[in-house]
């Protein structure tokens, strides 16, 4: 199965003498072409969830299966490789490398995997054009607006053709017009390229672009039926 699957995943943190259950028996399947959102108050375990989905943390219990592969038994080196090949991260703004221009932000990802071919360069350009950055290819991050920066980050997430896209508060520092644009773009690219995408956010205005919305509370993940209804009706 492609996409990502959580099978009864739990995460325990040791904090001094207390144990904190950050994720409590989370099960979830996101198929290819599906864009889901995870919302919840801070401290609810959203970030832990994202870190485990992104192969940055390993679960204490349960299993995460990414594109048919279990993440449980991998060592840090394999995890880095997996992040490079299978996962596209869209992080909060200004997480671009400050001294690389827009095109190079994408090429550096290709560099991590080996050589940059002419084809890679063309792909990167096309991707950036798709996201409306055709005239900004040679700009450095500090010459871009917040929205442009985030669009660059989206392009960077897609450049390696990963199987899953993970977005961590992608609209955190954007005004609502830009925020809508950005989430719309993520949704559009996810559909067009047939990826599984998970967005962690607390911005409830943006949920209309998602196929399903899950709510996280005290480490437990629940499908939020009300949002599903809304999306269906808005579609219908």
């Amino acid at each position: 199965m492609s996409g990502i699957q959580f099978n009864s995943v739990s995460k325990l943190y040791q904090q001094g003498e207390n144990q904190v259950l950050a994720l409590d028996d989370v099960s979830l399947t996101v198929e290819q072409g599906e864009f889901i959102a995870v919302i919840g108050p801070s401290g609810s375990g959203k970030s832990t969830f994202l870190a485990i989905a992104g192969a940055l943390l390993q679960s204490s219990k349960g299993e995460v299966i990414l594109n048919g592969k279990s993440l449980n038994q991998l060592n840090p080196k394999d995890l880095a490789r997996l992040r490079l090949e299978e996962i596209g991260f869209i992080l909060q703004t200004s997480n671009l490398v400050p001294y690389l221009n827009v095109l190079e932000q994408l090429l550096v990802v290709k560099k991590m995997a080996g050589k940059v071919t002419k084809e890679d360069k063309e792909n990167a350009k096309e991707l950036l054009e798709n996201l409306g950055l055709a005239v900004k290819l040679k700009k450095l991050p500090d010459q871009l607006s917040g929205g442009e920066r985030q669009r660059t980050a989206i392009a960077r997430a897609f450049i390696n053709n990963p199987s899953i896209i993970l977005a961590d508060e992608p609209t955190a520092s954007l005004d609502s017009k830009r925020a809508h644009e950005v989430v719309q773009l993520i949704a559009r690219e996810t559909k067009a390229r047939n990826k599984a995408a998970i967005m962690v956010t607390h911005d409830e205005r943006l949920l209309e672009y998602c196929d399903q919305v899950y709510r996280m509370e005290d480490g437990r993940l629940k499908l939020d039926q009300s949002f599903e209804m809304k999306t269906v009706s808005s579609r219908g």
Binding site: K77, A80, L84, I87, F89, L91, M112, R156, N160
Partner: peptide, 15 residues
Amino acid sequence: NQFGILKAIGASNRF
């Protein structure tokens, strides 16, 4: 922080 981000998006220690 920057290195952390690069690592998150898949950069190896070697790189």
